[in-house]
Design a protein around this nucleic acid. Structure first.
Lengths: 139, 139
DNA sequence: TCGGATTGCTATGGGCAACAACAATCGCTA
DNA sequence: TAGCGATTGTTGTTGCCCATAGCAATCCGA
């Protein structure tokens, strides 16, 4: 079959992200976590007392869409909120949340290792900087 | 803010694909096309009489999800189906569809050019082969 | 102190994909 | 050639992720 699509970096980007995402999602599902959950846990762990808004900005998730995400993490007992002032809330990992974060980190690092192993060695070191150039610092 | 996520190729892949996808979608919207529509048009144009199932396999879209896609393209007068045998249907571009395909191709090629221009020159030629290694030939 | 910006939230919808199930048809093989 | 497994097109449903619009409460700087 003649496929004119594989010549396009944008299309390959889409397909690669989709394939990698599905695989990572499956592994995180064993921890009862979604990808967005895991990324939020990592970021909260690295930045205790971060605000829901700031977290959303960093993850590029709208404020409105942070609500169900945090509600889920809080319901699972992984995250706690406490008022910083009258309108802002600081997010902190619970002990259970710190444990989930560690497990998620292990899963992700293992996954990332396998991902990188798939790309031929001569291209490997170029992948991350090339990808980051596509979205970092454009906002 | 400390962001432990940008060290992960998988996360950068996700974000880069999301950013690029949103941008391409916005440009294709001016042609009243979605990304999947455009990719289907390109593939049908390159492979006349392709089957809906084969097209879905190539695009990694389930048979079931091809139905609304093709229904949309057919309703827009871009694609026609004709029976190959009792159960298979061949897909062909109409004149209007060929025109839409050409316009979409121009938009995509322009977009891909801008995309590649964003990555530093020393990484540029490595992007496509690295990405393709992540999803091609794994099935 | 007052007005613009920020925060958290509700409600709603779109795009995309996954799964299960089904009837009709095809094609290989016994 | 009769039959059976595989394939095709389809319906229906669900889930994830993101976007927008709007709202009340609060913060903060001029």
């Amino acid at each position: 079959m003649d496929d004119p699509l594989t010549k396009f970096p944008g299309y390959s980007l889409r397909r690669a992200a989709s394939a990698a995402g599905a695989e990572l999602a499956a592994r995180l599902a064993e921890l009862d976590l979604r990808q967005t959950d895991a990324s939020a846990l990592l970021l909260i762990g690295a930045n205790p007392d971060i605000t829901a808004s700031a977290l959303g900005r960093q993850l590029d998730i709208q404020r409105a869409n942070m609500v169900p995400l945090l509600k889920r993490l809080e319901a699972a007992g992984l995250v706690e909120r406490h008022a910083i002032d009258g309108k802002s809330q600081g997010l902190v990992l619970t002990a259970k949340g710190a444990d989930a974060r560690a497990k998620a980190l292990a899963v992700i690092e293992h996954f990332e290792g396998q991902l990188l192993a798939r790309v031929p060695e001569e291209h490997r070191d170029h992948l991350l900087p090339a990808l980051n150039a596509l979205w970092l610092g454009e906002s």
